[in-house]
Simulated assay, not measured.
Amino acid sequence: MKYYNSKSVNATNILDVRSQVEAALKEEGFGILTEIDIQATIKKKLDKAYPPYLILGACNPVFADKALQAEPHIGVLLPCNVIIREIGNQKFEVSAMDPAAAMAAVENTAIEPLTTEVRQKLENVLNNL
C-alpha cells in the first residue's frame, strides 16, 4: 500500500514552496504544529551536506478531536506529516501522508470515515499547489 501522495512544483527556493503549502493547508482547515528542517539538523548533528528538506506536522483540530475521541491512542499517528524536498534545480516535491495507510493498523471502524475525509483534504492541498 502506498503511504503518501505527492506533487512536483517549480520554485526558486524551499521557502516559497513552504508558503504555498501553508496557504493550501489553511484552505483545508490545517495548521502547522511542527517544522523540522532536515537539512539543518543533518548538518548540525552529522556535519553532512543534505539537500533542502522540511517536514511539516499539519493538524486539522476538528478531525484530530474526532479521531482522539474515537481512539485515544491515535495520537501516536498524529499529526499528518507533509514534506517538502528539493529534487532538482528549482524543482521540489511536496508529499503528504495517506491517512488511510497510516491508520490501517488501527482496528477501529469509527475512524475510517475520518481517514477518508482527511485523505481528501490532503489531496486537495496537493492539487491546489
Rank of each mutant, 00 (worst) to 15 (best):
E93K: 08
G88V: 11
L129S: 11
K7N: 02
P79D: 12
G88H: 09
V62Q: 13
G29P: 02
K44V: 06
K26V: 07
A70F: 10
I84A: 08
V21T: 06
K2W: 13
A58N: 09
V62R: 13
I55L: 13
N60V: 11
E27Q: 15
V21L: 01
K44I: 01
L129Y: 09
K43M: 14
H73F: 07
L126P: 11
L68M: 11
I38A: 00
N108G: 06
I74T: 12
A70S: 12
I83Y: 01
D98Y: 05
N124S: 14
E117K: 10
S95Y: 06
G31I: 01
H73V: 09
Q120N: 14
N124C: 08
I74M: 13
A101W: 09
E107W: 03
D37F: 05
A100H: 04
V125L: 00
L25D: 07
V125A: 01
A58W: 03
S6G: 10
D98E: 11
D16A: 08
P79I: 05
H73I: 08
A11R: 06
I14D: 10
S6W: 04
V82M: 06
E107Y: 01
D47T: 01
I14P: 03
A101V: 04
D37K: 04
M1G: 11
L46I: 10
G31T: 01
R85L: 11
S6K: 08
G75T: 11
E27D: 11
V62N: 14
V118C: 04
V118H: 00
Q90V: 06
A64Y: 04
K26E: 15
